[in-house]
Design a protein around this nucleic acid. Sequence first.
DNA 1: TGCCCAATAT
DNA 2: TATATTGGGC
Length: 416
Amino acid sequence: MSVALEDILTKDSRDLLRKEELSHDDEIYEDSKEFPTTNIRVLLVDADPKSSSVMKNLMAQFSYQVTIFENGDEAISFLVNSKHEIDLVIWDFHMPDIDGVEALNTIGKEMDLPVVITSHDHKKETVMKSTKNGACDFLVKPVSREVIAVLWRHVYHKGMSKSGLDSVESYPEDLYQSNEEGSKNVEDSGEQNTSDQKGDKSLTKKPRMTWTPELHQKFEKAVEKMGSLDSAVPKQILKCMQEEMNVEGLTRNNVASHLQRLRWQKYRLNNEKNPSVPKETREDSGWRNAVQNITLTAAKPLLNQSLNLHNRVPYFTNHQAAANAPLQYPTTNYVTMNNRHFMNNPYYVDPFPQPQQLQQPQYYQPSPQIPSVTTKPEPAYVSSAMENSGGLVYPPDLPYNYGEHLLSDYSNFDLS
DNA sequence: TGCCCAATAT
DNA sequence: TATATTGGGC
């Protein structure tokens, strides 16, 4: 933490806020795709109308909805009644009636809204006061386009990691932290938890990802490459999905969790006596060893069919979460597959609103050790995409070695 | 209520 | 990394 303090003292905060690699429009665009700012409702409080006008125009380019107040008291009054209509407050530090510190204490803490402080000066004292009192960010005026482009992402991740509150110690490290896995809990000595009003704020809730059928297929393919469900490790699966299947936004933890679930499912499927092994049985640790000797039969297919992934859509707890969810959902036609699901989830946001390419059917090569499987119209392991494709087609070449992959789990396949 | 399932903790 | 536990949602 001494490092952080030193950084604040020595670096021009302008530099802190301007990422060099974001100086190209392309990348700004990329960024805003990942963290869409459309309809983010901003309350901008600045005594200087010129300043706020410039800011508003800039923000409009990124589709923020900006409401301006030139008077701090009025802004507070507005917020008291309408805080649910605002996602982010930007407050000029040197407001004559309510300065940045007071605003932070009132809005940031009592109303639990994220507050970003702006100022013409970036004196150490100003920055320190702001960050110490919980500013999500400190923007030196004039604020650049690049800063606006990444602003919501910063605020959003602040909210993820610390319920919107911040401390000087973590300021520089967190400023550009966009990695989900960086959002570990901070050890709180247990007080300050005012951020628990649920539902209406994305900043207090992490969007929950969903394993869509398409994403799951990619997972399966990756697992095949790794060998089998039992030998694959999360890190490698993730790497494969990212590098070879263009999956974005997925974390190692996502993969690990999914892997765990599948192994558990597999165990349950193989426990013929208790088709519904209760959760508690996990703790007898039998299943951990059992997975090494899996026996599957055609009547007990694994993965896709045992997981009810077919009719699911991404689920988000609120609109903001939906808007900010990582674009991890692969190109898919599940929206058109059944519009009912779209209607059922009021928070569903189609991450790919443009017309979709048809998903290539997925092919699974049978294990060479089980030639007769190739003639079976319905192998146990068939992707959901295959289910309606009218039969198996085997591509001439596949880039990996089948002898080793997931089908080894089927060495006791029931061929009858 | 019990289960599902992803997140998070250990 | 593997496993255990939690917690929201249905």
